[in-house]
Design a protein around this nucleic acid. Structure first.
Length: 926
RNA sequence: GCGAGGGUAACCAAGUGGUCAACGGUGAUCGACUCAAGAUCGAUUCGCGCAGGCGUUCGCGGGUUCAAAUCCCUCCCCUCGCACCA
């Protein structure tokens, strides 16, 4: 017998699989599935493994079910991350080098070339393909491409031409996080601190101060009517600067920020904060107010000068109170302008006093401010003399008025700080011009997407709400970048198409990727793609015959059946790709379904390359074997659930495969005539086939393995126990071997190929027919009989364990017919709680009196405890209990080592016999 | 904060009104086989019980029901997403 040797199985299978999964249009019905392609900037870990193995299992399943399956793969190399990585390696950054050299095990000769970003992605693309192949992924590698291939760029240009012509691409200005040292917008991953900070649009209220403006930033312009003073920090140096030709007084920090926000700024001179104290400023909407000192004023927040509305802002109120408690500015009174239900005349005062806040340093101040702010926004109304509008309306109206008449402008600032770039510099808000957007905010576009989403099959169904919400929530998406790899943006070639925006319809490109390579990129005009994908004729198309081949291929494969991706892409990529599809492709070519994955954990902690908490996929394959890795990843959780990689569980998975392997080899040559227990085994097998098939239809890999592996394994345990002495099975086991190998082939294809050969299967098991249920082999009667026997054996065992005597014989006492009658009546009753009455209507039962009511109660309890299908079968008189036990007598005597008798409970004289019920005979151990 | 999903025995995990003391797997304990085993097979793994039973469990607390892990409400905790980033 061959030893279990997964490395050898893998080698042999790989030899036989070369080119086997290259897939071309055929007579068969197609099944096209694809995964979000990887960004190959590092080595694959076992989390990646799951992402690509799930679709592979599904691909293999459908291939065996006779579909023409396409599972392609490519590499997304667009974007900025590798640029940063190559720079860090070039400058000798220890952390980065350690990651690539030690964790990813990049050889020194390769690593030194990583100063070129393209080398990094090329290296890891090859690695990905190598490791994916090692995992047994049935990918058509002819279709591999990267997103910086010139032909792909031509495809992207075609895509964008359509988006542009449909009016989805617009140009505008946009506030972004910006680092003045790097001279670049700053993404989340470039931040040292402040990744939660949001950019907020403030209104600058322009107070007049002599010939200059003093701007104060506010989110609540409507409170201008209640301003009693401004706050300036006396310890801060302010500047007088010419902003767009007008004099402003702001903090030094603010002057720098304003410059980034579409203003020309030249600083004239410094003004110590102290000099401004007690000066007077004015605004048309509130008149003349003084400037007061306040330590809480932060020069790095907006303009660095704050307007004070003590009636409605707790900070202002308490700062004023603090001053007044020192006997200063006692003539200033809060000026209320807003009424809010639940608050008195001066909300800020009331809130501060109620909370018992002593001074402005109290930590509860922020929460209090938020509370007043929310209450006034939600329920507040301006006083009648200011128009009486709700606050939420007045806010925008006043802002508009100020902008139009009173010189106000917008200023962008973060809602929380600090925000610090990786380089250590403070991040500011810059208004970026010549910024291009995909107009995801467009309601008409959204509506198209929502409509199509309804027709899509989403797995698991719970993610649907999340998709709906994402469509609803999406705003315009900045779709061009200044740094990184990618396709040039056609309308501004200094910029690149943003990485999430060049990877939305490439699933269509897969269908032609292996053929389009033969074309020179410059010949790939939009007209060429229009013909291939949209069937649009145009004069002078090059190489028409080849284009027709591609058109045929596209028409065959598209639309894709399912796209697979991790759930974190719902809020961007997965939704974007629907937007792009509906914008470009006709209805019948729109995506049909998506399967969303959970995350991967390693020993209970989140897997993360940067934290070093990863297990490399290749190491796992080398250590445990590809089949083990596959079976573990598929069996430990359903695809959409998070899975946890634990070595001890992986080791036991390997043992399970080995047990399967040995079991097949032991059974495959068994001969002999089948007995009842063989029929039972075959009937159960049909059940497992049906359930495995359903599970895989629904992408439930774990459920499928439970059925296909553990279900059959457990049946075999019972089967072996039930075999008569000296028998090791029957010829039916060959049928089971064949089916079992095929059921597990999608999960453990290497071992399956080996065994398929051993049992004399034709060709590759990868292309063998998926087992189908043979109705003739299904037998409820036999399964029910075995169920009765099994339950009784379990009861005998538990009794035997409890009682201390050494049994001399075991007697099974069968329930009398009238109890069967009661059982059937109750089982068939529409309301089982009323069934007892039903039973007692019968005269014969009435005569039995208490005996009958007791039996009815016991039957009711028993019926509740049995599986419903079993109850139905028993009630339909599906089992001859005496025959079951008589024919299992030899087995029972072997099991328990004592003589075994079957008798009728009534008249048996045994005290225990009265407890006999249908499907639960009395057991008498003596 | 907002949106979505989730909390089940030592661990992972199935289960969405009675099939539930709760599938399956791991780990642990005992036994069998072996020179031996990290290999294989069998048993046990909430408590009590010399008869197949009883009691108490499914994040906390409360409610609906003849009956709740499962339905409803309050609260606590965890994970993911919240954008220019793959």
């Amino acid at each position: 017998m061959d030893e279990f040797n997964c490395a050898a199985f893998e080698r042999r299978a790989h030899d036989r699989w070369i080119h086997a999964f290259e897939s071309n249009p055929s007579e068969k019905e197609k099944f096209y599935l694809n995964v979000a392609y990887p960004y190959p900037s590092g080595a694959m870990h076992v989390g990646h493994g799951r992402t690509y193995i799930v679709p592979d299992v599904i691909a293999r399943f459908w291939r065996m079910r006779g579909r023409q399956v396409l599972y392609p793969m490519a590499f997304h190399v667009t974007g900025a991350p590798v640029i940063g990585i190559s720079k860090r390696i070039a400058r000798g950054d220890e952390k980065t080098i350690r990651l690539y050299r030690d964790l990813y095990k990049v050889p020194p000769t390769v690593l030194e070339k990583f100063t070129d970003p393209l080398t990094i992605v090329r290296h890891f693309s090859d690695e990905y393909q190598r490791v994916m192949t090692a995992c047994g992924l049935s990918i058509d590698w002819r279709r591999r491409f990267t997103t910086v291939d010139p032909t792909y760029s031509k495809f992207i240009e075609w895509q964008w031409k359509h988006l542009y012509e449909a009016g989805h691409v617009i140009k505008g200005a946009h506030p972004v996080r910006y680092c003045t040292v790097d001279e670049n917008p700053v993404g989340d991953h470039d931040l040292l601190e402040g990744d939660k900070a949001e950019v907020i649009r403030f209104t600058l209220v322009m107070f007049r101060y002599g010939d200059a403006f003093i701007p104060t930033a506010t989110l609540r312009p409507e409170t201008i009517h209640g301003v009693t003073n401004l706050w300036v920090n006396p310890n801060v140096t302010y500047v007088r600067a010419l902003v767009d030709g007008k004099a402003w007084i702001v903090s030094r920090e603010a002057a720098e920020k304003i410059q980034l926000q579409d203003h020309t700024v030249s600083i004239e001179r410094e003004i110590p904060g102290g000099n401004l104290i007690d000066e007077k400023v004015s605004h048309p909407l509130c008149g003349e107010v003084p400037i007061l000192p306040a330590g809480f004023v932060d020069p790095d927040m907006a303009s660095g000068i704050v307007m004070s509305v003590p009636a409605h802002a707790p900070f202002d109120y308490i700062a004023l109170r603090d001053l007044q408690q020192q006997g200063k500015y006692t003539t200033i009174k809060p000026v209320p302008i807003i009424t809010v239900d639940g608050y008195g005349k001066i909300p800020a005062q009331e809130a501060v006093e109620k909370a018992g806040i002593k001074n402005q340093l109290d930590p509860r101040m922020d929460a209090l401010t938020q509370e007043i702010y929310s209450a006034e926004f939600a329920k507040g109304k301006l006083f009648e003399k200011f128009g009486g509008q709700p606050v939420r309306v007045a806010r925008d109206d006043v802002a508009e008025l100020m902008t139009e008449k009173y010189d106000s402008v917008a200023m962008y600032e973060f809602d929380s700080r600090p925000v610090v770039c990786r380089c250590g510099n403070k991040v500011k808000v810059k208004i970026l011009h010549d910024q291009w957007f995909l107009k995801y905010s467009d309601p008409a576009w959204k509506a198209q997407v929502s409509k199509h989403l309804k027709d899509m099959s989403l797995v698991p169904p719970e993610v649907r709400v999340e998709f709906d919400r994402t469509v609803d929530w999406l705003k315009d998406w900045a779709c061009t970048r200044r740094v990184g790899l990618g396709t040039r943006f056609p309308w501004d070639t200094a910029q690149l198409i943003e990485p999430l925006s060049d990877s939305t319809v490439y699933m269509a490109y897969y269908t032609i990727a292996h053929r389009i390579r033969e074309f020179a990129p410059e010949n790939l005009t939009p007209a060429v793609f229009d013909y291939i994908f949209l069937g649009k004729e145009s004069p002078s198309l090059p190489e028409r015959a080849r284009l027709d081949e591609m058109r045929k291929e596209f028409l065959y494969w598209y639309p894709y059946n399912f796209r697979f991706s991790a759930k974190d892409l719902i809020s961007n990529h997965l939704t974007f790709q629907i937007f792009h599809h509906v914008a470009i492709f006709p209805r019948e070519k729109l995506p049909q379904g998506m399967v969303v994955f959970g995350m991967g954990l390693l020993n209970g902690a989140k897997m993360s390359s940067s934290k070093g908490n990863v297990f490399l996929l290749e190491d796992a394959v080398n250590e445990f074997g590809a089949d083990t890795v596959r079976m573990f990843l598929m069996g430990s959780a359903e695809p959409w659930q998070d899975f946890d990689w634990r070595n001890e569980l992986v080791i036991s998975t390997k043992k399970q495969i080995e047990r399967f392997y040995n079991a097949i080899l032991e059974m495959k040559d068994t001969g002999g005539e089948p007995g009842d227990i063989d029929l039972w085994l075959m009937s159960r097998l049909q059940d497992h086939i049906a359930k495995t098939t359903t599970a895989l239809d629904n992408f439930q890999t774990r459920q499928a393995l439970q059925e296909a592996y553990f279900g059959i394994d457990n049946d075999l345990k019972w089967y072996r126990r039930r075999l008569p002495e000296g028998r090791d099975g029957s010829r039916m086991l060959r049928q089971l071997c064949s089916a079992w190998i095929r059921l597990l082939a999608p999960f453990i294809p290497f071992t399956a190929e080996k065994l398929w050969q051993d049992v004399g299967g034709q060709g590759l098991v990868s292309f063998a027919d998926w087992p189908v249920v043979d109705e003739n082999l299904l037998s409820n009667r036999i399964e029910l009989a075995e169920e009765l026997l099994l339950r009784t054996v379990e009861d005998i065992e538990s009794i035997r364990k409890l009682i201390q005597i050494t049994p001399k014989s075991i007697t099974i006492a069968l329930a009398p017919p009238w109890k069967h009658e009661i059982f059937a009546t109750i089982a068939k009753a529409p309301d089982r709680n009323l069934a007892i009455r039903e039973v007692m209507k019968n005269d014969a039962m009435k005569k039995r009196g208490k005996e009958a009511t007791d039996a009815a109660k016991q039957c009711t309890t028993l019926i509740h405890k049995l599986p419903p299908q079993v109850v139905t079968l028993i009630a339909a008189n599906g089992v001859n209990e005496r025959m079951v036990f008589e024919s299992a007598k030899a087995f029972l005597e072997k099991e328990f080592g004592v003589p075994f008798h079957v008798t009728e409970a009534e008249g048996s004289g045994h005290a225990k016999a009265v407890t006999a019920l249908p499907f639960k005979p009395a057991i008498v151990i003596e």
